[in-house]
């Protein structure tokens, strides 16, 4: 297991490195930051001085190696906009995103696993059909549209919660609810399908022949076996949220990593883009290891 994780760490490091190369050069293609950063009527001298100060006049390849050199020393460079270390800017935003992702995924997991398991056990009943319909709507609803409709309805018309920003518990409710819908629908369907096939398996028959009651058959015997594909999808969905729910964060003015990335790309704040990508990539890498560990925890056959 440790060996597998070690291997995974090495391959992740290589992908991370390739990603840095790719993003570094691609972001340079977007154009000159000086043009955006300085006022429109800035003189050529001012632009030149700005470029010189930030090393933008060197050949791109030289810029790249000096960036790598800094990176090795743990220096991600400064943000052009905020004149602060890019890493600090990113970590600040990342904490917001992480909280949002964790709370949402925890709620999604509990709700989808419970409802999905019961739906599978009561397959074909009205409850099953209702949850299936609910999950289908959830999995296919566009989140930007729901976000806007939710703001119109709950913030503007009813005035129950704030439209955007942060500051109180109330600010969290709409973003969480909107982000909840799609993973909930997807995971519910996976849980139901996976539980259905597990409930038809031979060991469930054995458990019934042993006189085990229904509740432990569902939640002890079947659920643990059915969780493997579910954990995969949970990881997948959590990764999407960690990357920053770009659309939802932007609509709700939520200061997370998704919004930060969009802003930095629009402003050609290269160091922030790179730092944000590396931080989220690292988070996703750690989460993948956690998923592997969860597999091993759930299924002894994987531990060997």
């Amino acid at each position: 297991m440790q060996k597998a994780i070690g291997k995974r760490a090495i391959s992740s490091f290589i992908s991370l490195f390739l990603l840095v190369i790719l993003v570094f050069f691609l972001s340079r293609l977007t154009g000159d930051p000086a043009a955006l950063f300085l006022p429109v009527d800035a003189s050529e001298e001012m632009l030149e001085a700005f470029r010189e100060r930030h090393g933008l006049n060197d050949p791109v390849i030289v810029q790249f190696f000096s960036y790598l050199g800094d990176l090795v020393r743990g220096d991600f460079g400064d943000s052009l906009r905020k004149a602060r270390p890019a890493l600090d800017v990113v970590l600040e935003a990342f904490v917001w995103t992480l909280q949002l992702a964790l709370i949402t995924m925890a709620l999604v997991t509990v709700a989808a696993v419970t409802l999905g398991s019961i739906a599978a056990f009561k397959v074909g009943t009205a409850f099953d059909r209702f949850t299936s319909m609910l999950s289908l709507i959830g999995a296919s609803a566009p989140d930007f549209w729901i976000a806007i409709v939710a703001i119109v309805l709950f913030s503007v018309n009813l005035g129950w919660v704030p439209t955007s920003g942060t500051g109180s518990v109330w600010h969290w409710i709409l973003p969480i609810c909107v982000l909840f819908i799609r993973p909930f629908g997807l995971i519910l369907q996976v849980v139901r399908g996976s539980m259905l096939s597990a409930l038809g398996s031979a060991y469930v028959k054995t458990a019934r022949a042993k006189g085990v009651k229904n509740r432990p058959i569902i939640f002890v015997h079947t659920l643990r076996n059915a969780m493997l594909p579910v954990v995969t999808v949970i990881g997948d969905q959590a990764a999407a949220l960690l990357n920053g729910a770009v659309v939802v964060e932007t609509i709700f003015g939520f200061p997370g990593v998704g919004k930060l990335m969009i802003d930095s790309i629009l402003q050609r704040d290269f160091n922030v883009i790179l730092a944000a990508i590396m931080v989220t990539a690292l988070a996703i890498f750690i989460m993948n290891i956690l998923i592997d560990l969860a597999y091993a925890l759930l299924d002894p056959r994987i531990r060997a």
Binding site: S201, A202, A207, A209, G211, V212, L298, D299
Partner: peptide, 19 residues
């Protein structure tokens, strides 16, 4: 079931819970 009348099956690998 299991107390007064018990049952065993063919293919014990799939009839035992793997986890």
């Amino acid at each position: 079931n299991g107390k007064r009348i018990a049952m065993i099956f063919q293919d014990p690998l799939s009839h035992l819970n793997p986890v």
